[in-house]
Amino acid sequence: MNLNAVKTIYVHEMRRFQRTIMQSLVSPVLSTSLYFVVFGAAIGSRIDQVEGVSYGAFIVPGLIMLSVMTQATSNASFGIYFPKFTGTIYELLSAPVSFLEIVAGYVGAAATKALFIGIIILVTAFFFIDIQIAHPFAMLALLVLTCISFSLLGFIIGIWAGNFEQLQLIPLLVITPLVFLGGSFYSITMLPPVWQAITLFNPVVYLISGFRWSFFGVADVSIGMSMLAITVFTTGCLAFIWWIFRTGWRIRQ
C-alpha cells in the first residue's frame, strides 16, 4: 500500500480547496442561506407543519443533502478531470499506485470538502431555525456515506467527461433534478399516488428520507431501505471505478 501517494493526492486536493475557498465554501453556504430565507422564513411561514415538523426545520436535511450531493459530485469530477485536461494524468498512470489509492486520495479529499460544507450548512441552519437531531450518530454516518458515494459518482463523471461542458452536463441534467424531485423540499406523501410510485425509482429519495429520519425520527421509506440503497449505490460506483482502471476506459490506451 502506497500510503504516501494517498496522502500526497489528498493534501494536493485539499490545497486546491484552500486556494479556491470562496468558490468552494462560501458560495454553497450563501446559496443555502438564501434557501432558508426564501423557503424557510418567507414561504415556510405560510405552510403548515409537514409530518409534525415545522416547514423551516423540515427542509434542513434536504438542503444539506442537496448541497452535499452537488458539491461532492462537482469537486470529485473536477479533481480527476483537471489532470486529464492539463495532461498531468501521465504522472498518476506511471506512478506505483493502485486504483484504490488514486480513488482514496481524490474521493477522500472531495468527500472531506463536501462534509465540511454539510456541517457548515447545518451550523448555519441553527442560526435560522430551531432544530433537534434525534439520532446524531446515524445522521453523521449517513452524511459521511453520502459524501463518499457522491464523490465516487463525481470521480466517474470526471473520468468520463471529454470537455468542461460534459463535466457540467450530468450534475445539471441528472443530479439536480433527482435531488429536487427526491423530496428535498417536500414529503413524497404530498404527491399524487402515481408520482409517489414513480418517485421510488429515484435513489436520492432513500438518502434524503433516511437523513431526515436521523433528524426527526420520521421518514418516507424505512431506514433499512435507505441504508440498503446507499450501500448498493456506493458498491455500484466502486465496482464501476474498478472496471475503469482495469480496462483503462477513457484514461489508458
Binding site: N4, A5, T8, R15, L92, V97
Partner: peptide, 25 residues
C-alpha cells in the same frame, strides 16, 4: 513527457513534492 503537462496554479516546489509523494517517497 514530450508535452509540457503541468498544473498551472501550483508552485514549482509543491509540484515536485507532489511527484515525490506520488511515487511513495
Amino acid at each position: 513527457p514530450q508535452e509540457i503537462s503541468l498544473e498551472p496554479f501550483e508552485t514549482v516546489r509543491a509540484s515536485v513534492q507532489f511527484s515525490r509523494g506520488l511515487f511513495g517517497k
